[in-house]
Simulated scan of single mutants.
Amino acid sequence: MKIGIIGAGAIANFLLKEINSKQMKNLHINSILVRDVEKYRTLESSFGVKLYSNLDDFLQSDIDIVVEAANVQAVKTLLPAVMKKKDVVLISIGALADAELLTEISSLVDEYNHVVHLPSGAIGGLDIVQNAHALGSVTNVTLTTRKPASSLIEEIITDEKVIFAGKAVDAIKQFPKNMNVSIVLALAGLGVEKTNVRLVADPHIEKNIHQVDISGDFGEASIKITNNPFPENPKTSYLAAMSILGTLQRMNRNIRIGG
């Protein structure tokens, strides 16, 4: 599978090293879309890729799928045009908090018959949510996210403090930079208006901790994930970067587990 990437930051470099440098079987990154070609020119010689600054030229290059590894604004600006030509792996899932954009993407999926892949990112349990909800029988999905207090609030606290408790739709509006995981969880199951979210500032932890609790006719499930930071960008979890690579690998396998 031939891959094009939008963006040349930490995630793009991670994928280039893992896929191109290690010559991963059946995967190769051919093209990268950037705003400033000269700034990233060394990527061409280092990883055997071609840089583009024009979206049309990028989409017409030798690629089968596009990985968005830029930011929310890039998604809003570029994704509709990309989806008319290619399947997409979307990393900046926070963009889907925009109801109008989500509606537009849903329409484009139907019209152009292209797929949008949403990696699970920093959380787990999405397969359980989707499978258990196949008959619409999931009754509760709750995400509890704990983050180091200093990353959420300026106030100095000695005990943990719940700074939000409510529905995902409101969590996304109030904490757009901290609640990307709630979006993909909501899309996997009950939607943003029925998915429960708690955001906790904890002065005693140094890593982000996500716990997903699910209940329904199938029974109950709880998944807890403690995320190490991504070495090249501490603001991103290592698992989030891995989930993108895992998504690409699964597309190429004839035996697929779960889903």
Rank of each mutant, 00 (worst) to 15 (best):
K2Y: 09
G4E: 06
I6L: 09
A8E: 06
G9A: 15
A12C: 11
L15A: 13
L15C: 14
K17V: 02
E18D: 15
N20A: 08
N20D: 07
K22Q: 06
S31D: 04
I32G: 01
V34G: 09
D36A: 09
V37Y: 09
V37F: 09
Y40G: 01
R41C: 02
T42W: 01
L43F: 12
L43P: 14
E44S: 07
S46F: 02
V49L: 07
K50A: 03
L51S: 12
L51A: 11
Y52D: 08
L55H: 09
L55P: 05
D56H: 05
F58S: 05
Q60P: 05
S61N: 14
D64L: 06
V66A: 10
E68K: 01
N71P: 00
Q73C: 00
V75K: 02
K76N: 03
L78V: 01
L79I: 02
P80I: 09
A81T: 15
M83P: 04
K84A: 10
K85L: 01
K85I: 00
K86T: 03
D87Q: 05
V88F: 10
I91Y: 05
A95S: 12
D98G: 10
A99K: 14
E100Q: 15
L101A: 07
T103A: 13
D110A: 09
E111Q: 14
H114V: 08
V115L: 05
L118Y: 08
S120T: 15
G124C: 02
D127V: 08
V129L: 15
Q130R: 14
N131A: 11
H133M: 01
A134G: 07
S137F: 12
S137H: 12
T139M: 12
L143N: 12
L143I: 13
R146F: 10
P148R: 14
P148W: 13
P148T: 11
S151H: 05
E155S: 07
I156G: 10
I157V: 08
I157P: 11
D159Y: 04
K161W: 08
K161I: 03
K161L: 11
I163N: 02
F164I: 02
K167P: 00
A168K: 08
V169Y: 05
I172P: 04
I172R: 08
K173S: 07
K173V: 04
Q174I: 04
Q174K: 12
F175I: 06
F175W: 13
M179Q: 13
N180T: 06
V181S: 13
V184M: 06
V184K: 11
A186P: 04
A186C: 09
A188L: 04
G189L: 09
L190N: 02
V192S: 10
E193V: 00
K194F: 05
K194E: 12
V197G: 06
L199P: 06
V200E: 13
V200C: 14
E206F: 02
H210G: 02
H210P: 02
H210V: 00
H210M: 01
Q211G: 03
D213P: 01
S215P: 04
G216D: 05
G216Q: 04
E220C: 09
E220G: 06
A221G: 00
S222Q: 11
K224G: 00
I225M: 14
P234H: 13
T236Y: 06
G246W: 12
T247D: 08
L248M: 10
Q249T: 15
Q249K: 15
M251Y: 04
M251F: 03
N252P: 10
N254K: 11
N254G: 06
I255Q: 14
I257L: 07
G258N: 12
G259L: 10
